[in-house]
Amino acid sequence: MSVAQTKADRIRVIVAKVGLDGHDRGVKIVARTLRDAGMDVIYTGLHRTPEEVVEAAVQEDADVIGISILSGAHMTVFPKLLKLLKARGADDIKVMGGGVIPDEDVVKLKKMGVAEILLQDTPPAAIVDSVRRIVAERGAR
């Protein structure tokens, strides 16, 4: 019997690219990494709005939203996502980010409530660990 047949609350992650940012190699590698760690990964595709991502995350009952962003718009996108999740009563869905983000912004984003920012030199195993830790810290819901 394969692992796929065991009963477990499988972690559901929605990975998305928001706005005018077509660099999707990173997000695909992350998706694959999380898949290989046994998670269900929902990929929304390119050019989504924060509203679309939040609604998709609610419908999919995601544990985590992972945003890959290489466009420099992170200081606009993340606050918006957090605000929308709160307004939807869905702030149990945790937000993570990855991509090209300056160190000083990383500090600010975490202060705002982004659960984790993983930069481009993060090893795959560390991405998996972060997702698992964040979901464990949130607890059952």
């Binding site: 394969s2 692992v3 796929a4 065991t6 499988r10 998706a31 694959r32 999380l34 898949r35 290989d36 760690a37 046994g38 998670m39 269900d40 990964v41 929902i42 990929y43 929304t44 595709g45 050019h47 989504r48 509203e51 679309e52 609604e55 998709a56 419908q59 999919e60």
Partner: peptide
């Protein structure tokens, strides 16, 4: 499909359904 090895999956059907979300 789920992976028969890790049990994980990549669910990509939403990619085509973006405009329905609102």
């Amino acid at each position: 499909p789920s992976s028969p090895y890790s049990g994980g999956s990549i669910l990509g059907d939403r990619i085509r359904m973006g405009e329905l979300v609102g």
